[in-house]
Design a protein around this nucleic acid. Structure first.
Lengths: 252, 252
DNA sequence: TCTAAGATATCATTATATGACACTTGTGAT
DNA sequence: ATCACAAGTGTCATATAATGATATCTTAGA
């Protein structure tokens, strides 16, 4: 029955424990034993043992009355450890703080994580939806200015593979799902040195991003700014946001 | 030999896997197998299996050349799931954004986690040390204005136990380690409705906090603001920061 | 080039996780 | 208030899956 990972270096119990942790997301903020069993597809008894162990070890809080499990503060402590381990975050944060004060708009550090962009650091400056104010959110790289800015620094072959194969999802009615169109957009990014996208993840949201280049010229992260199209027209974005954004990206 | 937790509901393998995750912190940002074995106190072979499993499951990145492990982006995604699960964060963030714009200073959501305060949400507004700009950091509750503000809402008996027993650590030369003095400070907090501490975690840092009260009057979190004593004297703090801070805490 | 320290691989042994089942507790409907 | 069903908790024989000692391979430093 068991996985092809039937290697002696692979501990199934630990992997299942991680499955339980990852069962929690935007829509599943607290889960009962049976809920966990359903989502993970694991045996009822197994989930009981896994959840209990995670609880005893302080990784899950348990509501004594509803008996439902919730992520514990330990999850934030893991994030704290992550932040120290990511050298880019430490270098970017001071610049992002300056940038956000200067622009008065939300700025992010967007990192490439597989086929997706993860917002590693966020400085929300204006009331916005919750998902846009907390770090750790991931979105398809092809659909964001951050992802396009990063992809534009890739060698042609890799870029084409990415544009052809990477996952896309129509988050809004205006999300670009035509890969040829995305390819053209990325050509523009290469020419201009920055990326702008409209209404990709949220309606009336404009994303502007500049890649942070490594010593090899290749980028794995971008400085990203998100503004409302109601408050900012194209000309003002290019005049008042872009210069500072590019400066920040280049000095990180 | 094994733990007193020799319960059939306790999965040792999973617990050891978590130990490996928690081996990473401020000072250990990337670890080799032998490093992990040393920190966790686990068998070399066990660590090999645990780390390999965590790597395969995407919880640890592995540098192909140094063979050292680092926290992966998955750690941030866990934090993202945490944020959705914590009802206080969602309610606090819009208020914190307003507050930080108004004050132009760093504001935090401080939650009580055992004997410590954890900064669940942070909006850094001014360049500061790295540890103060990323969420997930924990500090002893007794040594922070946030912790004192929360403790001041506790019934007398619990408060006294906390002041007597909770852990203290002299982070700076000015950290208050005299528990009688802390008790007096908390009495002041109860009278005034807010807490101010000086030089507790960092030199020349002033912390100001107001408790966020639940329907039962008891508090589990506080709105916290951190400023430099070079730029703010006591009078200005009380006149220009406190009113807004208390307003924010009361409306969350 | 040599030498250790560290990483990877192997394997017999048995401890440890498994999952079916029974039991208990809570919840919502009648 | 009672009942019935769903959900949570506990037990146990079984064999899978974790163990840790050892051996081999790799890397970095002398």
């Amino acid at each position: 029955m068991h996985e092809i990972k039937q290697n002696t270096l692979y501990l199934g119990t630990l992997a299942k424990g991680l499955q339980v942790l990852r069962a929690f997301d935007e829509t599943h903020t607290e889960l009962s034993l049976s809920g966990l069993a359903e989502i993970t597809g694991l045996d009822k008894s197994a989930v009981q043992r896994l959840a209990n162990t995670l609880h005893v070890e302080g990784m899950l809080d348990k509501d004594p009355v509803t008996r439902r499990y919730r992520p514990s503060h330990a999850w934030l402590q893991l994030a704290y450890a992550y932040y120290w381990s990511d050298p880019l975050v430490a270098r970017a944060i001071p610049k992002l703080i300056d940038l956000s004060r200067r622009l008065g708009e939300t700025v992010n550090l967007a990192e490439l994580s597989g086929e997706r962009i993860i917002y590693a650091a966020r400085l929300p400056c204006t009331r916005t939806i919750f998902a846009a104010s907390v770090p750790g959110r991931t979105v398809p790289a092809l659909s964001t200015s951050g992802g396009q800015a990063i992809l534009a620094t890739f060698p042609a072959a890799e870029r084409e593979v990415a544009i052809r194969d990477w996952h896309l999802h129509a988050h809004t009615s205006s999300t670009t799902v035509d890969r040829a169109e995305i390819s053209r957009q990325i050509d523009d990014v290469m020419r201009l040195g920055y990326a702008i996208t409209y209404h990709q993840m949220i309606q009336s949201e404009v994303g502007i991003a500049c890649a942070i280049r490594g010593p090899d010229g290749r980028s794995r992260a971008a400085v990203h700014c998100s503004v409302s199209s109601h408050h900012w027209d194209d000309a003002r974005i290019r005049a008042e946001i872009l210069p500072w954004l590019m400066d920040a990206a280049n000095t990180i």
